[in-house]
Design a binder for these strands. Sequence first.
DNA 1: TAGATTGTTAATCGATTAACAATC
DNA 2: TAGATTGTTAATCGATTAACAATC
Lengths: 180, 180
Amino acid sequence: MYHDVLVRLEDAGVRRVRSQELARECNVRGDRVRADLSRFDRFGIVGHGYDVHVLRINLGRVLRVQTPRKAVLIGTGASAEAFLLGVAGRMVGGRSVEPFDVVAGVVQSLRVRFGVVATEPGWAQETVDALQMVGVVAVLNVSGGGVRCPSGVVVETASPMLSFKRLSFLAPRRGVRVSG
Amino acid sequence: MYHDVLVRLEDAGVRRVRSQELARECNVRGDRVRADLSRFDRFGIVGHGYDVHVLRINLGRVLRVQTPRKAVLIGTGASAEAFLLGVAGRMVGGRSVEPFDVVAGVVQSLRVRFGVVATEPGWAQETVDALQMVGVVAVLNVSGGGVRCPSGVVVETASPMLSFKRLSFLAPRRGVRVSG
DNA sequence: TAGATTGTTAATCGATTAACAATC
DNA sequence: TAGATTGTTAATCGATTAACAATC
């Protein structure tokens, strides 16, 4: 979240940022930003805030987004296309459809560690299990299906349906005030 | 999360479910499920677990997903299409492109409370602000852009880029064991 | 009655908030 | 030196876990 904002700020030519400004962009409080960042190191200059570039680089290192990561995307439908568009910011060319065994072989020999599951919902579990078998350790599940995560694997599920149910519960209701 | 699983179970014809089984599907523990559910009511039968249908209905009521909710989707690109596909489970027909003022008028007069922002990233903030002005109280932001949420509005941002950065940090690294 | 499983209470843990000393 | 802002410590809060009594 902070990293995203820092990238935006740097692109906009901003040099210096205070914890409160960063907080505002992220809908949190200034002390929360400082507490979070200081878990890793002292990135700021007391009395002056943070150097945007320096903080972006350091946070990138912490998140390990500096070094390129090989990832495999399983699925051919609209979710797959939407994911590619969302990550690359543009349409990505060059696809071919291969049997899963072939894909698994490539994943294994190239030591791919990250996976995105964009299959039909009913195939999500099987796909994650298969990816785990060939060495994938982190999976983003955008299939809409549920997944029990095998040991040794981190699974993050992103589903518009789930997000919508959460919103439906969290939406402010007239006359009801919720703390936090 | 629980509601999603219950819908799947009911579709599969399952009548009864124990907290541990529900937990397994959601990658949590049985006592967590019981603690969560009992925040709202006593849905279960001691010694026998939960009736899938009864629990689904009750949880649906809590989440307010039973009553249909009017929502407005702003945006015409692939994110918008992908969202529709993800929610409806199929392609949805019947679109027309209207000036935003017209859309705002319709939102206001139909008292639409939910919004999905699938514009280009740079327009997300402006769109959320405009929706707030015409009475929207909950927004799902799938634009890829950042949004500061105006008061009185709940914003949930879903971004593949963000999810990927999180995974990149959480992914198990050889030799490092993390608690939790 | 015996066995199973919920719902609740108490204990633990971690995350957020508040306050402020350190220091640029 | 004065003002601003970080990083840290202590206090608060809420969420998770553990244990078990209640009861179907």
